[in-house]
Design a protein around this nucleic acid. Sequence first.
DNA 1: AATGAATGAGACTTCATTCAT
DNA 2: TATGAATGAAGTCTCATTCAT
Lengths: 198, 198, 198, 198
Amino acid sequence: MATRSDTTKTRMYEAALALIAEKGFSGTTVDEIVERAGVAKGTVYYHFTGKAELVEALIADRLAPLEARFREAVATAPDPRTTLEALVRAELEWIRDNRAFSKMLVTELWREERVWHDTLVALRRTIIEYFERAIRDGIAEGVFRSDIDAPFAASALFGMTVTSALDWLVFSPTTPIESVAEQIRRLTSMAVASDGKA
Amino acid sequence: MATRSDTTKTRMYEAALALIAEKGFSGTTVDEIVERAGVAKGTVYYHFTGKAELVEALIADRLAPLEARFREAVATAPDPRTTLEALVRAELEWIRDNRAFSKMLVTELWREERVWHDTLVALRRTIIEYFERAIRDGIAEGVFRSDIDAPFAASALFGMTVTSALDWLVFSPTTPIESVAEQIRRLTSMAVASDGKA
Amino acid sequence: MATRSDTTKTRMYEAALALIAEKGFSGTTVDEIVERAGVAKGTVYYHFTGKAELVEALIADRLAPLEARFREAVATAPDPRTTLEALVRAELEWIRDNRAFSKMLVTELWREERVWHDTLVALRRTIIEYFERAIRDGIAEGVFRSDIDAPFAASALFGMTVTSALDWLVFSPTTPIESVAEQIRRLTSMAVASDGKA
Amino acid sequence: MATRSDTTKTRMYEAALALIAEKGFSGTTVDEIVERAGVAKGTVYYHFTGKAELVEALIADRLAPLEARFREAVATAPDPRTTLEALVRAELEWIRDNRAFSKMLVTELWREERVWHDTLVALRRTIIEYFERAIRDGIAEGVFRSDIDAPFAASALFGMTVTSALDWLVFSPTTPIESVAEQIRRLTSMAVASDGKA
DNA sequence: AATGAATGAGACTTCATTCAT
DNA sequence: TATGAATGAAGTCTCATTCAT
């Protein structure tokens, strides 16, 4: 049961996201957001303490569906290697479907002075932990080489997937997602495979 | 022979870079830049059309030393695999020494409306081409697997290195560069190695 | 029903006009305008895109009363000659009461790059058309000589009146308006009179 | 014998004049003047104390030829009426040949705060005195009506000619100068003619 | 729950002028 | 005689936020 309040917030989230993806956080003005959302300026300050809190709430709002997708990817995979592939695939799909959000994640992640920096870092942690667990499991089971650092590898694979995905979306958006996923699969599976067994 | 003009520009570049590293582009004011550079405010506008062009010029100014480092890395490496390692190492060192720059590269690369977007894209191209050439050579020589797309792999490796490096600098800056390089080496060398020979 | 917005705008118009009368357009700063109007600086930019647009709106705002005065002058005059005199008189009074405006009209009319150039040209057209119609009527009725070009004569008389009026206001402001009007009447009525009947 | 100094000054005069005619005094920057003149910025301050003095000198520089033309017009005319016509003609020609200067004369004449206001006023006086003398002579000889104020009529005729000329140049520059002169002749000669004798 | 006019600190930019060469 | 880099006061404009309605 979406209240009137919820509807208004959603419209503001969507407007803010689209604009921030294109022009960055500081490049986007509250005026632009409310114009696109079709609400009055004061409305932002009625619902949130300011622009920063709106973005923070927006991030929180998008977290649940992201997590759900990852959880599902992990649940159906039979082994670590398949899990890793499923995670990459889930990440790619999520980036494709949440292009604006992904851009924001990448372009704002290292901006330490931002108030919602912590929220973004936590989000990144959440995603990476899925990768990390799969890698750890793979090492334990002997299908992944043991001399790699699971947290490091997880964040490296995550980063590789994100940057590849954004390159794909920005520079060659017509390439089918399958090709991209397959290329990443080849690179990643090899990278973590234990000797000679890839 | 450094003219007076050049000296002044250099001082502004250095001030701008240091400040942007800390606070981001929009978070840095012209007032701060000129105060740190020890010049008058008008000087920025005498040499450039504005803050943005100063940054654009700054980027162009730093391109040469970056290229030099990469050229050197390539020149001294005996084979494709070593070249790739040298490139990763060079990239890591460069990121460490040009942290502000690297951040900008990542946070502004997909922001198409910025005036210096083209300059940054060109910079990225330059770097990636070094990776691409090494990978292509490796494939030709049979030391890298032939079913990977050289341009894709190049940009993926570049992206992985950048995000890893920034994670390293932001989240665990005390880790020695050797560890980071070694971890990436393990991941990347494996990733591109042809079957069974890694 | 004057809205809050309208009240604010009116106060800014009045302040701007008074100041520009004294110091010219570029000699008047936004700071001075808002201080005199008793509003905040941002208010100018909330209602207009900038100083120039404020002036443009101001011109449009003053057009109606000017037109009204001319319409009235024309309505009550019984014949072309009296109409012409009434128009000159109306123009003189209007210039005296809108000195700032009149100065602007003259000093900016031939300055084609100003954003509100078109507005001013239209304003001039409006005024001149009243003169033109009266002259045309006079020629048709035979009281004005037929070998003069109505549009040309109209703009010439308008120009003569404006420059005389400004000379009067600037160089001998104590002269009563009646004397000025009478002198112009003698010159203009003669000028357009058909032979021998002046 | 034009010294190097003279040449430089002339080039600055020409550049300044062209620019000020188009954009006004405050709308024209010293940068633009020196760029158009092909000299360095400091050169303006070597020859003059500043932008205002450059304009003042410029005005003085153009005064002599203007006066010469008027003197000649007066010298060759046999009677007051012809003199007046010759003056109008001279004024029109001068405006056509010194379009930029004329614009400046009109658009800056009533700007009382300008430092060179006095110079312009004096210039205007000079021109008007020619008209005034002719009118006075005509009144004395009985060919002009005696109830008009010679100084007033002189400045009114001058103003009418200037505004007509500028309208002509700006709004219908293809009209031959003869037509314009003839129209003004009809208006002015009538205006000042004594009863029934025009 | 929502509005939108108003705010004002602070940002960017302009430009006449100075001065070392 | 001329240059052009450098200046800094003064200006225009932005925009997150407040507040009366």
